[in-house]
Write a protein that binds this DNA or RNA. Sequence first.
DNA 1: TTGAAAGCGGTACCAA
DNA 2: TTGGTACCGCTTTCAA
Lengths: 336, 336
Amino acid sequence: MNIREIAERAGVSRSTVSYVLSGKRQVTEVTRLRVMSVIDEAGYRPSAMARALAHGETRTLGLVIPPLHHHLSSEQLQFVGAVAEAAADRDYDILLSPSGGDREEAFDRLVGERKVDGILLMETRWHDRRARLLTEMGFPFVTIGRTGAEREHAWVDLDYSGLVAESMRQLFALGHRNIAFINRPQEMLDQEYGPALRSLEAFENARTRLGVDGLARCCEDSASGAHSVIDDILEVVPAVTAVLTINEQALGGVMEALQRHGRRVPQDVSVMAIASVRVATQVQPAVTAADVPAEQMSQQAVDALLRRISDPGTALEHLLLSPSFLDRGSVGPARR
Amino acid sequence: MNIREIAERAGVSRSTVSYVLSGKRQVTEVTRLRVMSVIDEAGYRPSAMARALAHGETRTLGLVIPPLHHHLSSEQLQFVGAVAEAAADRDYDILLSPSGGDREEAFDRLVGERKVDGILLMETRWHDRRARLLTEMGFPFVTIGRTGAEREHAWVDLDYSGLVAESMRQLFALGHRNIAFINRPQEMLDQEYGPALRSLEAFENARTRLGVDGLARCCEDSASGAHSVIDDILEVVPAVTAVLTINEQALGGVMEALQRHGRRVPQDVSVMAIASVRVATQVQPAVTAADVPAEQMSQQAVDALLRRISDPGTALEHLLLSPSFLDRGSVGPARR
DNA sequence: TTGAAAGCGGTACCAA
DNA sequence: TTGGTACCGCTTTCAA
């Protein structure tokens, strides 16, 4: 069933059918109704491919996701669902491209074969080949998380630096003078993963500025990773009174491990985190944290991308989100 | 840059360029090389849309995912990544369609506008509107997880019934006569979610058959959900010696809660699960479990779908996987 | 207000 | 071994 057949059945030309569907030109109400009834009766829907070819836009966005063997935390994956929904709300579809590491064919297919109108890049690194490539090609894209070339492209990101600094201020104000920071795994730091990098830097800066003791540790994205890191921290700095982490995969393990060591939260140790609401509320006890607002970020990334596609000339959008810390009772004054 | 331009630069016809690219007809080595060098020099890649239109296939598969407000467990999301990789390995792309609930437009777009060659359906329910629709339309699709109409379409599924029965046998053999089963949330049962349904049934059957005491409980997909369920179970049946669960989101909470109640694993209580390796190994202590082999299932689903697309006439493939339980030490003889 | 026809960028058949 | 050309199904300009 194609547009020609509809045209014949309705006794009009193909262009009239097209205009009835697009509304881009006046059509007498009577013919419009006739055409519409034929369309409904036939259950006709225009071919997306043909439209894309003629019209020059696919109404599809590419989403580049990291390959499985990388640590894609389940919460990173929430972005995938959120992006798909945000796009669907705007009548766009999302084409997935597992990329990074050795599998770049899918990525090349998306841009090279023009299967998509624009691209969303997530899990970006400081030196990001794909971002560089897209910039060079002038292909519309937005990253979720910055790269080292942040002025060169549009992005949406969480202000890890600011959030870490803010939490350090809050802890300091409560009398904490010995604070531990639990980061993402060492290898992510090695790969110049933005949040790990910026958070660590902000932690060390705040520590120096405020004159606070403590230490930073990388930690595997797992409960068991958290157990060993807490063991390590309590051995090296038994006097620690607060723990700050951006590793939500480890958060549950952190709470367990502290309990195992007989440290009560918040009486003995305060815990603060940057983590999704889900994780922060599900651990026992719940943790005072700044949300990672995946849905909001995804929507804004999609909107920013659609704007870049329709107005490639306008200024690049840079959106730094800084959600506030929600008190869930895991933070208290420092034990003397 | 299009095929005409390449043809002109190489001094051949468009068809020759096309044949050089597809290899569907003999081309003299010398012209082949000439054409290839022009192509490389120009960085030319044929337009996917034009090819799709002419050739009648999009080389894209649709993946229908449940909307966010449903319980998008990390386990489910692993499938998304795994399916994308499996497809990429076969030079196919994956188009995401959030569906279920009130958002069906994206789904209709995929099939109605023929954006994809076939569809993978996940999170299927017993009565599944989408599966029914696709069956009626004769559209190629494969489900990950069965529906009530399992003979009507191809599927890949985990044998929850068999696995639950098997674990009950193993526990029985170890002397357990009082076994609790922890299911997915009540609402998933209400929605006739296959694994929840079949597992519960298998549990009750085994209990009757073996003459074992115990009880089944639904449980929210979270640690806190697990805590209350374990509280409940230990209050109702203090003599319980084994816990079996298919709720991997709750597994960590189950272990914590047992510990909180002073029950050691496996000395006081044995724990068995159907869960991803990642979760089963990350909880403390690790749990003896049957893997949910997401990667394997995704690959097989993609392959089955590609076969359906190329040979729509062949028999529907039904693939029931039954991974074996991997001993991680959380199961022991029943305490007397 | 509507129709005819030239694209969009490929594929593949029919000739040569 | 290669070229010419009629599609694929839709959009949009130009004419009527």
